[in-house]
Structures are given as C-alpha cells and as structure tokens.
Amino acid sequence: MLKTRLIPCLDVADGRVVKGVNFVNLRDAGDPVEAARAYDAAGADELCFLDIHATHENRGTMYDLVSRTAEACYIPLAVGGGVRSPEDVRALLLAGADKVSFNSAAVADPDVVARSADRFGSQCIIVAIDARTVAPGRWEIFTHGGRRATGIDAVAFARTVAARGAGEILLTSMDRDGTKAGYNIPLVRAVVDAVDIPVIASGGVGTLDHLVEGVTLGGAAAVLAASIFHFGTFTIGEAKQHMARAGIPMRL
C-alpha cells in the first residue's frame, strides 16, 4: 500500500537555512546539507528546499547546495524558488534535484509546465500554488510571496496545470501559513477533488493533529511542514507515529 509522505521544507537564502534548524545536535544549524542529512536519518519521506531569495546572481549557490545535498541523502529532493524555464529545470535536475517546483512562472505562462513535462517527464514537475481565501469556498492565487493578487481561481488553475502535465501540486494556504492554526482543509479538499495528481498540503501546521487532518479531511497525498520540525517542537518520528496511530498508512 502506498504510504502518506511527510515532507519537511527548508527555506533557503544564499545557501543558508533561514531561521536555522533547531534539533538533533547539528554542528551548523544554518547548513541546509546538515539539516537534510538529519531529516533523512530521522525518516523524512522526501525533502523540499525553497530558495526564497532566488535571483540570477545566486543560482550557482543553489546548484552547489543541491549537488552537495544529493550526495548526502538517499531520499527524493524537491527544489523550488525562482524556477522560470525548462532550462532552469534542467540545471536543477543535473545538480541532483529529483523534482523541480514552478510557482509564479507557471501562473504567468502555464505552458512552461507543458514544455518542461514533455522534456523531463511529469514525475519531476511540481506546481506550487499559493492561494488566499477571497470568499467562502473561493480561493485566489497570489504570487510574489503572497503579496500580488492575480485574479486567478486556485482550483481552476490546479486543473489547468494538471492538464498541462504537472506531476504534483504543492498547495499552500497563504491565510494559514505561519499561523499554526492548521491547514486550510476546504481548500485542500477542493483541489484534491479537482485533480487526478497528488496534492501536497502546506501552510499552517502547529500540531500533529493538523498533519492528520490534512490527510483524513483534506485528502492530501503528502503533508508538508517547516517550523514544527525546525524548532524541535516535534520530531519526524513523533509525527509519523502520531499519523500512523490515527490510521494513516505511514512508512515507519
């Protein structure tokens, strides 16, 4: 039986982990490679790096980081932030990423998803959707870190990119991100029901029950969290045990 994935996400800027990672005796809490290695050892099912200050000038730093992480970890690595073209996808895959995530560029031009999926396969193309509630049961895509409204309906856009060949959707609720109030379950449910590809729930995890709800209520194939793991509130093992006790198939 396929297991539900638990994915810690690391925000990275200029090759360093933003805010640090506070657990398991890391020699250097700001080194993404060390954090990745620790999460691998702790039983994370996959890792996500998000380059939050992606610019042309610092791409080399990210490629180097991805390359060193791929050498240290034997679990899948997804990388996002500043990905604009099939050439960016190729560079990250060659550096050692297993999956690459589009965000604003896919909103501006959904065909970039098709061009990339045709060339590299859907299995490595994620589309990250940042959505904000605009009315009950209606969510709009926001880009540029949630600051810029697009007028695009998040559920309709999910269908669009799935049809263009995206292999997975990373769905972040901008209403919930950073609040620790739990995933935006109606949003997760709406997108899961709209597409045939896996959906990763993101944004708002504060407790282990939130992870459970993302799966049991939202229907997500994978759950992503950042701060509850980085700050040592819970370990990966505790989270997976908790989800398994709630009846969710997990890789323990």
Binding site: L2, R5, Q123, D196, P198, A221, A222
Partner: peptide, 12 residues
C-alpha cells in the same frame, strides 16, 4: 478511482 496517477511515494 481515488488513487492518483502517478503512483508516487513509498510503497511496501
């Protein structure tokens, strides 16, 4: 029909 394709993740 609720199972998604691609089959993506850890299976035993």
């Amino acid at each position: 029909p609720r199972l998604k394709v691609p089959h993506m993740g850890w299976n035993d």
